[in-house]
Amino acid sequence: MTGMSRFMVNEAEVAAKVMDGEAILIDLSSGKYYSMDLVGGFVWSLLSSQHSVEETIAAVTAHYEVAEERAATDVKKLLDELQKEKLIVASNAESAAVAAPAAPAEKSEYTEPKLYTYEDMGDLLALDPPMPGLTEVPWEGADNKTEEGK
């Protein structure tokens, strides 16, 4: 990986969405969920739209109160994790798919971008499988009352 390396979402296996600045990713084969908060979501939206590592670091320093050196360390660390989890893959694109957002007049507070993993989401969803007609019996039926008789 170099500063010029570009990446894209591993679309064959991953669904991703940035909502209100925060990213949620789902590994469709394993059922694992991931999230990244505001700075993480910002980095994700840049990296996943094929901005190079250098361009991403530059955008982070333009948007947040952070020194370039620290931004570089944090972005590369996050990138390593995203690659390790196979959430992004290398791209041959020579430029980003979309332009980086314009630098704001005032920079925002910086926190280290982190990838939160929820490896047990599938297991937890299976804890209490839906059983229509069992736990889900309306009270009207339970009370043997009709709509009129309530």
Partner: peptide, 8 residues
């Protein structure tokens, strides 16, 4: 683990 929703 910290990488699980239950752990968190």
């Amino acid at each position: 683990s910290e990488q699980s929703l239950l752990g968190q």
